[in-house]
């Protein structure tokens, strides 16, 4: 690293930070009574879920979440398009392999719990999906080439499951004249659960599949040679 540019950059970034701090202070002290918090809380009963964060993600701003899953899909498709890469790590020790045998089921179980709990308490599709992804990564680290993932065909279906659920529900409600992603109140809870379940699977699968950094492997359940 060259010392002079790094100092120059520091001298440029420091005043920027000060200005931003000042602006942030001003923003906090502006007399703006309008916060979405109260509105989000009073509308909560109409969403069918008790956790306001889940309500924002799946109901109030569900459209954002759908497009965000699109970002995840674009990254996965981009990684798959780059072709195969060499494995970047060593075969595992025995102790690790033994530990994985009970860590992975535990992760899957916890993911399911987080998905279910997300309706009322902290938790939800992304937290659950992250744990599923972690289970896949741990399997890969023990030399399981396929990370416990199914065939490429099934992986492609799982990768789109979350957006697919959003679109199916959204186009359905639009066709029914309610508007895109406007869930009818009596169905809301179950539609949200459906979308969340599909999203959990899609996020978990995508994170695990993105980890080795290449397209899905050939069929067979082979492991790395020790």
């Amino acid at each position: 690293m060259n010392r002079t540019p790094s100092l120059v950059v520091a001298l440029l970034v420091a005043p920027l930070a000060l200005v931003l701090l000042w602006a942030f202070h001003e923003a906090l002290t502006q007399p703006s009574g309008a916060r979405l918090a109260d509105l989000a809380e009073t509308s909560l009963s109409r969403t069918g879920v008790g956790n306001p964060v889940t309500a924002v993600l799946l109901s109030y701003r569900g459209y954002d979440t759908m497009l965000e899953l699109g970002v995840l899909l674009a990254a996965l498709l981009g990684i798959w398009s780059l072709g195969r890469v060499s494995p970047g790590f060593h075969p595992p020790e025995l102790a690790l392999t033994a530990m994985v045998a009970w860590v992975v089921p535990l992760l899957i179980l916890t993911a399911g719990y987080l998905l279910w709990a997300g309706a009322e308490r902290p938790g939800g599709a992304f937290q659950g999906g992250a744990l599923l992804g972690a289970a896949g990564v741990i399997l890969r680290l023990t030399g399981e080439r396929r990370l416990g993932l199914p065939s490429e065909r099934a992986q492609r279906r799982l990768a789109i499951a979350g957006i697919g659920a959003f679109l199916a529900v959204g186009l359905g409600t639009a066709a029914a004249g309610l508007g895109f992603l406007a869930y009818p109140e009596s169905w809301s809870k179950w539609l949200i659960l459906l979308i969340e379940t599909a999203t959990t699977l899609a996020v978990g699968m995508t994170l695990a599949a993105a980890y080795p950094g290449g397209p899905p492997g050939p069929a067979g359940n082979e492991r790395d040679a020790p």
Binding site: A34, L36, L39, A40, S43, S59, Y60, R61, G62, Y63, D64, T173, L178, G179, F180, L181, A182, Y183
Partner: peptide, 13 residues
């Protein structure tokens, strides 16, 4: 213009 998700504007998109 339209508000998505059946929620009025500050809450919806």
């Amino acid at each position: 213009s339209t508000a998505l998700g059946g929620w009025d504007i500050p809450l919806g998109i």
